[in-house]
Amino acid sequence: MTEPAPEPKNPRHWGKLERPGIRRKLIHELARAEKTQQQLADEYGVVKSSITEFKQRHTDRITEVAQALEDEFAGLWIAQKVDRLDQLQDLYEGDDDPDRVRLRKELLRAAAEELGQIPQRTTIVQAQPLEVRLVGVDTEQL
């Protein structure tokens, strides 16, 4: 068994298959296993070895999605509350760049809002006193 080639440190070097929308779609297609790798390569405009390498890089995620095909958010770590909390913990423990920390927190919050996982806040308005008049009734005699 040969060792896999080392992955580039920067995912941008992996090409168009790693673009967010494409990556998610290809992971789901590989999980469903309805097409051959050659068919996928033709569809995505890459060579078959690119699909094979992609599959090797994302084996865990593909397996996760395959186990939960009914879940449209399977394979999206940001859709999972526990994964977002893990990211926040990593930010707290390691990132000293305040601009990057702020941006990442905003993105995590936006994902949670999109998923409806943040309770809606309601504003209570001070109400005016209610005055009730009963026509034809003398309330003093009640």
Rank of each mutant, 00 (worst) to 15 (best):
F73A: 01
E131V: 15
L76R: 08
A66E: 06
E64V: 05
D99E: 13
Q39W: 06
H58G: 04
D60P: 04
K55P: 08
Q39H: 09
D99Y: 09
V65Y: 03
W14N: 10
R84S: 06
R102V: 02
R102I: 05
A41M: 04
P20N: 07
A111D: 02
E7D: 15
Q39T: 07
D95N: 09
Q38Y: 13
V46W: 01
I62E: 06
V65S: 00
R61V: 05
T122A: 11
V82L: 03
D83H: 13
H58P: 01
R133H: 14
L107E: 08
E64S: 00
S49L: 05
W77C: 08
V101I: 06
G136A: 05
T139D: 06
F73Y: 03
F54I: 07
Q56R: 15
D138K: 06
Q87C: 12
A41D: 00
D71T: 01
E113R: 13
R104M: 01
T139V: 15
R100W: 05
I118G: 08
H28W: 15
E131S: 12
N10H: 11
A74H: 03
A79N: 08
K105F: 14
T139E: 10
E29K: 08
Q39M: 00
A74R: 01
A66M: 06
T63W: 06
K105L: 15
W77D: 09
R109I: 11
I22R: 07
P11Q: 09
D42Y: 02
V46Q: 00
R23I: 08
D138N: 13
E64Q: 10
W77M: 07
E64M: 01
L130E: 05
R100F: 09
L130Y: 06
I27N: 05
L115D: 07
R19I: 02
H28I: 10
R84V: 05
K81H: 12
I78V: 13
P98Q: 10
F54C: 03
H58K: 07
E114T: 13
A66R: 03
K48Y: 04
Q37A: 00
L103A: 12
Q56V: 04
G136V: 08
Q128C: 03
L134N: 08
T139C: 14
T52N: 10
P129M: 00
Q38T: 15
R57T: 00
V137A: 12
K48E: 02
P129D: 03
Q56N: 14
Q37K: 07
D99P: 03
T52Y: 10
D96V: 09
G116T: 03
E29C: 02
L17C: 00
D95L: 11
S49F: 05
I22E: 02
D90T: 09
E131M: 11
E34Y: 06
A5K: 15
K16C: 02
L115A: 08
A41N: 05
T122I: 13
H28E: 13
E43K: 12
V46P: 00
R84E: 00
K105T: 14
F73P: 04
L134R: 12
P8E: 02
I51S: 00
R100Q: 07
E72L: 09
R12A: 13
F73M: 05
A74S: 03
V125D: 12
Q56H: 15
E140H: 14
T36S: 15
P98Y: 08
